[in-house]
Computed example of a mutant assay.
Amino acid sequence: MINELPLLQKRHSVTNIVVHLIFTTKYRRKKMSEPVLAYLRGILASLAESKGCFVIEINGEADHIHLLVQTPPQISVSNLVGFLKTYSSKMILEEFPEFRTFSNRVAFWSTSYFVASAGGVTIETLEKYVQDQGKTKRLSSPPFRTEVSRRMS
């Protein structure tokens, strides 16, 4: 699916930045039933789209949620996470006020999160691609060599 995503084309760049996000509920309380998860899918997708992001997939369990999101390069992942967690927390607590009793602070999400890049190929494939640059017969610049490698040869 990631390889099938349209590239984000701007005036001076073409990107395909996809990240895997995981948010946990405050104190890892098992708050998310299927109706809560369905509500979160809708609001998180809407919030992400308002920032110019595209949600590929959202799913979760009782105490955490996974998001797979394509994001433009001008939005930092930490800003996106802060935005999504802040506004979705406010919206979920308005829709399900019974969750306010789980903590003294009004928050649905834990302050922590997980993020990983989710490219279309493995690290090994990218390493081989970079290593093989300049080895084929075509018009290209010579392979990159550091000052140390030049002295050693």
Score class of each variant (00 low, 15 high):
residue 74 Q to V: 01
residue 57 E to A: 15
residue 63 D to G: 09
residue 44 L to Q: 13
residue 75 I to R: 02
residue 51 K to V: 00
residue 69 V to C: 03
residue 48 A to N: 02
residue 39 Y to R: 10
residue 24 T to D: 04
residue 47 L to I: 05
residue 65 I to S: 08
residue 60 G to M: 09
residue 6 P to E: 10
residue 8 L to S: 00
residue 12 H to W: 02
residue 54 F to H: 13
residue 28 R to T: 05
residue 35 P to Y: 08
residue 65 I to V: 15
residue 8 L to G: 00
residue 27 Y to C: 08
residue 46 S to W: 06
residue 56 I to P: 05
residue 35 P to M: 10
residue 32 M to N: 13
residue 6 P to L: 06
residue 14 V to A: 04
residue 31 K to R: 14
residue 38 A to C: 10
residue 57 E to C: 12
residue 56 I to S: 13
residue 15 T to I: 03
residue 31 K to I: 14
residue 22 I to V: 15
residue 58 I to V: 15
residue 68 L to D: 07
residue 38 A to K: 14
residue 26 K to P: 02
residue 34 E to I: 13
residue 66 H to D: 08
residue 22 I to P: 03
residue 53 C to G: 04
residue 57 E to F: 13
residue 59 N to T: 12
residue 73 P to M: 00
residue 74 Q to H: 04
residue 56 I to E: 14
residue 44 L to P: 09
residue 68 L to S: 11
residue 46 S to D: 14
residue 71 T to F: 00
residue 60 G to S: 11
residue 13 S to Y: 01
residue 50 S to C: 02
residue 10 K to T: 02
residue 24 T to S: 15
residue 13 S to T: 02
residue 5 L to Q: 11
residue 48 A to R: 02
residue 50 S to H: 08
residue 8 L to M: 02
residue 55 V to E: 07
residue 49 E to A: 15
residue 75 I to L: 09
residue 47 L to T: 05
residue 65 I to C: 11
residue 19 V to F: 06
residue 6 P to R: 06
residue 66 H to N: 12
residue 59 N to I: 11
residue 30 K to D: 13
residue 34 E to H: 12
residue 6 P to M: 04
residue 14 V to C: 08
residue 19 V to Y: 13
